[in-house]
Every structure is written in C-alpha cells, then in structure tokens.
C-alpha cells in the first residue's frame, strides 16, 4: 500500500475565539485529484495553508510527504507545488526572466512542459509580469508551480481568473499530470463543473467541517436528494442535511436505493447548493 502524500488527522484550527476548522480528516494519495468545495469563508484556504505549514493548526496532525507540515525540509518543499489565490512576486520581471530565475531553484524542472504551457496559455515571454492580466498572472503561477512535476500539488482556486477555454484545458492537463506522474492534487474551487470534470475525489466543507468526502463517482451513487415525501423506505445510511425541499441522504450501499430514487442522480452543483440551503 502506498503511503499518503498528504494526510490531515483531526485538525482543529481557530482564530481568536472563532473555530475555523473542526475535526478535519482527509487523505491525498498518489494519482488522486481532490477538489475542495466550500463557500467563501468555509475554511478552504486555511486548510491549504495548514497543509504547507504556513499557519499552524491548534490540534491534530498533518503529514505532508511523510514529514510534519511544520517541519518541511527543503527537499520536501522542492516536491510540492503551490499556487496561492494572490500570486505575488516577480512583479518587476519579464516573464522569461522570472521563469529563468524560478527554474534555477528546481533541479527537476521540465523545460518542455514549461514551453508547452507557455504557448498554451499564450503568454508573451517578453511582457512584464506586472503588466499581465490577473488571469495571465495566474497562468504564470500555475506554470511555475507545475513545471518541476511536483509530487504534491496544492492549488487555491487556481482557475478562478482563467477564461473558460484555458480553464478547461488546464483542468484536463492537471488530471493527466496527476495520473502520469502519480502526483496528488488538492485544489479548492467554487466552480463545481470544473471539480466534477476533473476531480477523482471531493470534499465539501461547510462551517469548518467536512460534510461530504470521498470518491466522486461513489458519492454520486451513494448520495440522493430525497424529496421529503419519499423518506420512508431509505436504505441504511445517514442524513447529511435537510434543506427546504430535500433530505440529503448518503446510503452505505448504493445498490439499495428504492426504484424511484435509483436513477435520480444529482450533479455536484445541485448537491452543493442543497447542502447550503
């Protein structure tokens, strides 16, 4: 059995008196692409920052590439790719100069991949980073985080400023890259269609707690939005949430759904919205 690339165990974090994350347990294994979904302020960014040791958890443990998140060695760090929400740095550089300098920090930099992505994102190498649009700066940050083929990739809303075509292409590449090099990817996003398209696993965070987590296809089979009048003969499982219109129910065995509900799969967006109403 392969050891997980990233593991959160009973993570608890609070800022002053306000708990931000409570009892978070998640595992990212090689080849896994986990989409982290949640509303603004749900705690997604905090969780990603904790994974990297940027901020310390109040309790619980994080194992990042078999090291504690608070004691990541330079070797360990060179195997992690990270794109924050606000990429800053290299403001006074031209794109090509920024890449040259950045490249010099990584022994395993894949220049072919870098060039491929530069042309895909149509980035002008001679442009100043500060003159790039927000989306282009995000593209550059993605190239910088992925061209050394990190084992673990952590992306905080990586595609929020990209146009739909670039977003779609990036997302499919992300998935391929993870499969090819057995990397693990943890990314947060608001765009449920993107998550649905590429994530192998998802975790939905609400008010600092993981409401739902697991393999996406399995979850789709297990979870149903059950109208209140059909809640009598449900298979064994548990109630995730009760919205105005539905009871959101997760069955232990997806085969046991009653006929009315067997084919009523809901998409991720529906599930996400109902979990928050």
């Amino acid at each position: 059995m392969t050891s997980p690339l990233l593991q959160f165990t009973k993570i608890h974090k609070q800022f002053t008196d306000k708990p931000v994350l409570e009892d978070i347990n998640l595992i990212i294994e090689p080849g896994m692409v986990m989409g982290l979904l949640g509303r603004n302020g749900a705690g997604k960014t905090t969780l990603l920052r904790i994974a990297l040791g940027l901020i310390a958890q109040n309790s619980g443990e994080v194992s990042c590439l078999n090291s504690s998140n608070l004691e990541l060695s330079p070797t360990c760090k060179s195997q992690i790719g990270y794109v924050p929400q606000q990429p800053c740095g290299y403001q006074g550089f031209k794109v090509k100069d920024a890449l040259t300098l950045h490249r010099s920090f990584y022994p395993n930099w894949d220049i072919t991949l870098e060039q491929e992505w530069l042309s895909r994102f149509e980035l002008d190498e001679n442009k100043l980073v500060s003159n790039l649009s927000v989306g282009q700066q995000q593209s550059l940050a993605l190239i910088m985080a992925m061209s050394y083929r990190p084992k673990l990739l952590i992306l905080d809303e990586p595609v929020s400023s990209l146009d739909p075509i670039a977003r779609r292409e990036f997302m499919s590449d992300l998935f391929e890259l993870a499969l090819e090099s057995s990397s693990g990817v943890l990314f947060s996003s608001h765009i449920t269609s993107d998550v649905e398209r590429v994530a192998s696993h998802i975790a939905i965070i609400k008010d600092g707690k993981v409401l739902v987590s697991g393999e996406l296809d399995t979850l789709k089979e297990q979870i149903r939005l059950v109208p209140h009048h059909l809640t009598n003969n449900l298979p064994s499982g548990h109630l995730l949430h009760q919205s105005e219109r539905f009871s959101i129910y997760q069955a232990h065995d997806s085969a046991n759904w009653q006929a009315d509900l067997q084919q009523s799969h809901s998409n991720l967006e529906q599930l996400f919205v109902e979990l928050h109403t």
Binding site: G53, L54, P74, K77, Y82, P84, P87, H102, Y106
Partner: peptide, 10 residues
Amino acid sequence: AQESALLFPA
C-alpha cells in the same frame, strides 16, 4: 507577502 516564497527557501 508571498505564500509560495516559503516553498523555495533558496
């Protein structure tokens, strides 16, 4: 201000 600066201490 750079979160990612932590990841490449060099």
